[in-house]
């Protein structure tokens, strides 16, 4: 088999860049959202590219984290999921905990959790290698990312402006995800486009804290 030198060069370049990608592109607001493919808990395979033309919300999740608990036990996260998916937004819950770490779940465990909590994301993606997490530099759960129909990140950070575990803080919080979606859908620039994501650290394989 004959391989052209230029083909080899391209391959090499792509390989090099793939390896360096997390360093080069910590996915930032204003950047194209990095593509990914992941198995969903419902058995399907999800490609981010499938949702081009729609708004996409990414929600980092860990069912043992008290900050995530605040939003699920108050019903806030489920309300947001239903509110926005009913308006055509794709909502992807992402599970980046490594096996053996807090928040790691199998597909069945996640399906049971979704049913029990009456959660309604478009899909819950299993990311036990932390690949998607690292691609988006997800630091905490619940960290949130909003992607516009053109595939550009328009928000990354906290779910709201109350970085606590107190359920009583939910009703008075300013929700940055809803704000970003509303402003962008109205054709306005997103006022608060990046915030410090609060919560529990994402339990990647190398996590010790």
């Amino acid at each position: 088999m004959k391989i052209k030198c230029s083909t080899l060069f391209t391959l090499l370049a792509v390989l090099l860049l793939c390896a360096a990608a997390p360093l080069l592109w910590a996915a930032k607001v204003g950047d194209p959202a990095p593509e990914f493919t992941a198995p969903a808990s419902n058995g399907k395979t999800v490609h981010l590219a499938d949702y081009r033309g729609k708004y996409v919300v990414l929600e980092w999740h860990n069912n043992g984290c008290p900050y995530v608990g605040k939003h699920y036990n108050s019903g806030n996260m489920q309300r947001l999921q239903k509110q926005w998916t009913s308006q055509g937004v794709a909502w992807l819950t992402i599970l980046s905990s490594a096996p053996g770490k807090q928040g790691y779940v199998t597909a069945n465990e996640e399906n049971d959790y979704l049913a029990k909590m009456q959660a309604a994301p478009t899909a819950a993606l299993l990311d036990p290698t932390g690949e998607i997490g690292h691609l988006y530099e997800a630091k905490t759960s619940p960290q949130m990312v909003v992607i516009n129909p053109q595939g550009v990140i328009i928000y990354s950070g906290a779910i709201d402006d109350k970085p606590t575990t107190d359920l009583q803080d939910v009703p008075n919080a300013t929700n940055y995800v809803s704000q970003a979606l509303q402003q962008s859908m109205a054709g306005k620039p997103v006022q608060t486009a990046a915030t410090r994501p609060y919560g529990c650290s994402v339990k990647y394989a190398d996590a010790t804290y």
């Binding site: 650290s201 996590a207 010790t208 804290y209």
Partner: peptide, 9 residues
């Protein structure tokens, strides 16, 4: 400083 390479508290 407490943490891992990607997350520092």
């Amino acid at each position: 400083r407490l943490g891992s390479p990607s997350i520092v508290d």
